[in-house]
């Protein structure tokens, strides 16, 4: 019970921090916010499977109630890889944007040709 509560609090805090950073004007803070929000979403998927005490690998599955759901863990793994790729691309775009405009503020970046 305590572990679940702690997980819920952690997801809530990470989501709050992620949303706060996304609403900032700095490009890098927005990306950092997206990264944190993505972690919160991954933990949320993990929480949706009701995590149990044993890892679902290398053991006999005679008592499946003791094992965590492996499907959500596979989903999280895929989501992490995809999220990492997307964020890397966005960091590249952000670097180019800030380099060309010489500022990090979304309100001041005006590269519209």
């Amino acid at each position: 019970m305590e572990g679940k509560f702690a997980l819920a609090v952690l997801i809530g805090c990470l989501s709050g921090v992620g949303c706060y950073l996304i609403l900032q004007e700095s490009v890098m803070r927005i990306l950092l916010g997206l990264s944190i929000l993505s972690t919160a979403v991954n933990l949320f998927i993990f929480a949706s499977s009701q995590p149990k005490s044993l890892a679902p690998i290398g053991k006999s599955f005679s008592n499946s109630d003791l094992f965590s759901d492996p499907l959500t863990q596979a989903l999280i793994l895929t989501a992490i890889v995809i999220g990492f790729g997307m964020l890397s691309f966005l960091f590249g775009i952000a670097c180019k944007t800030t380099e060309r405009s010489r500022c990090d503020d979304t309100a001041l970046i005006d590269l519209e040709d």
């Binding site: 490009v27 775009i93 590269l111 040709d113």
Partner: peptide, 8 residues
């Protein structure tokens, strides 16, 4: 031809 801000 593109605008990085638009892609962002």
């Amino acid at each position: 031809k593109y605008s990085p801000k638009a892609i962002f």
